[in-house]
Nucleic acid binder design. Structure first.
Length: 409
DNA sequence: CGATTTTGACCCGCGC
DNA sequence: GCGCGGGTCAAAATCG
């Protein structure tokens, strides 16, 4: 698939353009600053054109000149010579250049930091804008209206948002598994390999929320939803009690008789969050995309269940990752910064005593009834709440933890 | 024309 | 037994 929801799909490109532009502007600013200084034209020092004046090079020049003048001074002991004057002038100017160089470095650092911050803000704002559109109509029950607002041409509707529109797709939360076991996955539309899967996704502002859709041939856009590497067919939608947003039911259509189903529903308290619940085991090999995703989906929910606290990380998009105190959390949770948007994956299908994360099992293991949930957010709210904002993170984490730990494996 | 989505109806389990 | 809620079915609509 090559087309996506305008806002999200264009975002990476948009950001790239912005980045280039910003970098250009920055460079121009840099050079302008350098050449704009009044005393810039004054020095006759032979400076490299590419502004690659390093402190060491300046110092080297200074040292060489000083050494030469010092020799000369030794020969002409008495009166201040022309060389001495030149030497002092050069020293002054080189000192100024050195200071300027340092100032420019500091400026460069500031601008770099500022640029990074602005880029983050831009991404969040764009995401928020899309989210507002989605929220405005999503829970209104008028699907067609929402479709018209979110992505008028149905064919360009990315799976993520197509699911959003029906209460499907973006987020889903479910608490209980068939046998009481459950798996939690905080991930980016990650398909389950087997069992019942709960997961969370955080399509952060970085754009391509539906990256997986890119692998889908354009013609198959309506043929099948491929939001996580698998093909799903919607077979029902229900308005669940306690949640104004409808819950959508999907079946895996990648193979005849594949028992895997998923439910998608918006998180009631934060409609930006989609909770997807997978149930069952695929009776077919997963496609490469799904397998790759699955490989990264080793269980971020373990973090929630393990009691790890969510606190702000060094960067807004970096999850405060798994607490090292929880051994299985570290072994079963993953974070994928390389994803279109940061992805945290928790796999609660494994107890700490079990070895290794639950990734891919083929041929499918006899499904120990597992329950995985998969929550995705299409706004900055979740990143904020998951990765930083104390209030939201607390309530949300508690809610999700309560949901997925209702019947721990 | 085939696959998917939509949506009302139906089924089933659970609590009172 | 009845009502409620959740899950599924299936016919019609939609789309490529």
């Amino acid at each position: 698939m090559t087309t996506h929801l305008t806002g999200d799909d264009d975002q990476p490109e948009y950001q790239q353009v912005d980045e280039k532009r910003d970098i250009r502007e920055f460079v121009d600013f840099f050079s302008g600053e350098r050449h704009g200084r009044p005393d810039d034209s004054a020095p006759d020092v032979d400076l490299p054109k590419e502004s690659s004046i390093t402190e060491s090079s300046i110092n080297q020049r200074l040292t060489l000149n000083t050494g030469w003048l010092t020799e000369e001074e030794d020969r002409t002991v008495t009166k201040p010579s022309l060389h001495q004057l030149m030497n002092s002038n050069l020293r002054v100017k080189l000192g100024e250049l050195k200071d300027e160089n340092q100032n420019l470095r500091r400026m460069l650092d500031r601008v770099t930091k500022s640029y990074a911050g602005l880029q983050t803000q831009l991404a969040l704002l764009k995401q928020d804008e899309v989210l507002k559109l989605a929220n405005a109509t999503y829970c209104a029950g008028d699907d067609s209206q929402e479709r018209a607002m979110i992505s008028p041409p149905r064919k360009v509707k990315p799976a993520l948002f197509s699911e959003l529109e029906a209460g499907e797709g973006s987020s889903t939360i479910k608490t209980e598994g068939d046998d009481g076991t459950n798996n939690s996955i905080v991930d980016n539309q990650m398909p389950p390999c087997h069992g019942t899967l709960k997961s969370m996704t955080m399509p952060m502002a970085q754009g391509k929320a539906g990256s997986m859709e890119e692998d889908v041939p354009e013609g198959s856009l309506r043929r099948a939803r491929i939001s996580d590497g698998c093909q799903w067919r919607k077979y029902g939608q229900k308005l669940a009690k306690g949640n104004p947003c409808p819950r959508a039911y999907y079946r895996c259509t990648m193979a005849v008789g594949c028992p895997v189903r998923k439910q998608v529903q918006r998180y009631a308290q934060d409609k930006a969050i989609l909770v997807t619940t997978y149930e069952g085991s695929h009776n077919h090999p997963l496609p490469a995309a799904a397998a790759a995703l699955a490989a990264t989906t080793s269980a971020a929910a373990a973090m929630l269940l393990s009691g790890s606290t969510i606190s702000s990380g060094p960067t807004p998009f970096l999850p405060p990752f798994v607490s090292p105190h929880h051994q299985y959390a570290t072994s079963m949770a993953s974070y994928s910064p390389s994803s279109p948007y940061p992805t945290i994956t928790l796999d609660l299908s494994h107890s700490p005593l079990l070895s290794g994360p639950n990734i891919i099992h083929w041929p499918p293991m006899p499904p120990p009834p597992i329950f995985d949930t998969y929550v995705s957010s299409d706004s900055h709210v979740l990143p904020g709440s998951l990765l930083g904002h104390p209030q939201n993170s607390h309530s949300f984490t508690q809610t999700v933890r309560a949901a997925i730990s209702a019947d721990p494996a």
